[in-house]
């Protein structure tokens, strides 16, 4: 499951041991394509990695804080600290191996 972040409230993602945060927007093509792939990956990694979605239009403060200039931007956090980020669409096998390589 991908949790939706609202009102710039990032507290849950920060508490997670490992979180993948998808910064995206409804009008962005590659973001819309990333969403179903991320959903699939989140089911397969349930219990190990938490997944969050941040709409950059609704959560401008968070997007600024993370210096998001292009979307979709996936940020991988370990105990609230960014360890890696990936910009643009990735097919499922690539996305999975990017996350696995950072665990």
């Amino acid at each position: 499951m991908v949790n939706v972040v609202k009102n710039d409230d990032f507290s849950a993602a920060k508490k997670a041991a490992v979180a993948v945060v998808d910064f995206s927007a409804t009008w962005c093509g590659p973001c819309r394509m990333t969403a179903p792939v991320l959903e699939k990956v989140s089911e397969k990694m349930a219990g190990r990695v938490e997944f969050y979605n941040v709409d950059v239009d609704d959560n401008g403060e968070l997007a600024n804080q993370f210096h998001i200039t292009n979307i979709p931007c996936l940020v991988l956090l370990k105990n609230g600290v960014e360890v890696s980020r990936s910009v643009g669409f990735q097919p499922e096998p690539n996305l999975t191996s990017w996350i696995e390589s950072n665990l």
């Binding site: 927007a25 009008w27 962005c28 590659p30 200039t69 292009n70 979307i71 910009v87 643009g88």
Partner: peptide, 16 residues
């Protein structure tokens, strides 16, 4: 820098 300040599609990324 594609996807990080460089884009190939105006229609797609203009709103950013």
């Amino acid at each position: 820098y594609l996807g990080n300040g460089v884009s190939y599609c105006a229609t797609c990324d203009a709103p950013l």
